[in-house]
């Protein structure tokens, strides 16, 4: 029996968030968003629509000028930076270019969340790091530095680092930006695997409608080790929701079918069906 999304605990809730830098125009304008456990949110929008900024607000990296942020059931809006560190330890993030530390090796980069938070020794977490890197098919790059890897590989290391501490919430900021279509699909397939193996709540910011389409319609089959189409009656279909942003506002929220049915020309730009024509 499919469970209703509203019964699941709320992981992230943004309530009437506004953000402006200085006296300039609002980057976020009264944005409200709710993410429940197990849900996948695809956040679409043109460049400068405020997608990445919204993720940074949810992470506490930017303070909103107005509105409240709730994470894992707590109001974290007025948390100090030290309190945020604790909250952030349950969130995995992939930054636009991977956000890897140039001065550290790939192994040290992936081990960073574990070593930093639990004050474990790098040797103790080595097997875990190796496994995480094997998962993204980069088991042979442990000793390399980020500058020696390609853009797609750096993104994969970023995915390994985001998932290593087993977070309850995963945020991906433009995981496929600037990559060729084949590499982009590989990255999306990894993100789907990550979603299924950890059963984490994920939000993906992207400007490619294909990414959303893959997330909404495919799942990972661990037996055949391939992606397969989700059956039409599967509850998994209900858990992927689309959000479209424009000029700092959320202008659409709903399922893929609703996205395809939208008559608004801006929203329709992000629909797989329309763009195919």
């Amino acid at each position: 029996m499919p469970t209703h999304a509203t019964e699941r605990p709320c992981i992230l809730r943004l309530q009437n968030i506004s953000l402006a830098f200085g006296e300039g125009a609002k980057v976020l304008d009264n944005v409200s968003l709710e993410m429940r456990a197990g849900e996948t949110k695809i956040i679409l929008g043109a460049a400068g629509a405020g997608k990445s900024v919204m993720l940074k607000v949810a992470l506490g990296l930017l303070k909103p000028t107005e509105g409240r942020i709730f994470l894992f059931g707590h109001d974290v809006t007025d948390y100090t930076e030290n309190q945020w560190y604790e909250v952030r330890s349950h969130i995995g993030v992939l930054f636009q270019e991977g956000g890897l530390f140039d001065s550290l090796t790939i192994e040290e980069n992936v081990a960073y969340p574990l070593v930093n938070r639990s004050s474990k020794k790098p040797e103790e977490v080595h097997p875990q790091v190796e496994e995480a890197l094997r998962f993204v098919e980069l088991g042979h790059t442990l000793e390399k530095f980020p500058s020696e890897l390609s853009g797609g590989m750096r993104r994969r290391v970023g995915i390994a680092r985001a998932g290593i501490s087993d977070p309850a919430l995963l945020l991906y900021d433009s995981p496929t930006a600037g990559l060729d279509p084949i590499t982009a699909n590989n990255i999306m397939s990894l993100i789907i695997q990550e979603r299924e193996t950890r059963n984490a709540t994920s939000a993906i910011v992207t400007h490619r409608f294909q990414d959303g389409h893959i997330m909404a319609n495919f799942r990972y089959n661990p037996d055949s080790k391939r992606l397969e189409r989700i059956p039409d009656d599967s509850p998994l279909r209900q858990s992927t929701r689309f959000v479209v942003m424009r000029d700092g506002q959320i202008v659409f929220e709903g399922s893929e079918a609703e996205l395809d049915a939208s008559t608004d020309p801006y929203i329709a730009k992000f629909s797989m069906q329309r763009s195919a024509h």
């Binding site: 990296l61 930076e81 969130i91 993030v93 930054f95 890897l100 140039d102 938070r117």
Partner: peptide
């Protein structure tokens, strides 16, 4: 500055380091 523009400083904060 390079760390800032490549989001390494944000990543650092996100990973719990001041």
């Amino acid at each position: 500055g390079s760390m800032k523009v490549t989001e390494q400083i944000d990543a650092m904060r996100a990973l719990g380091t001041d």
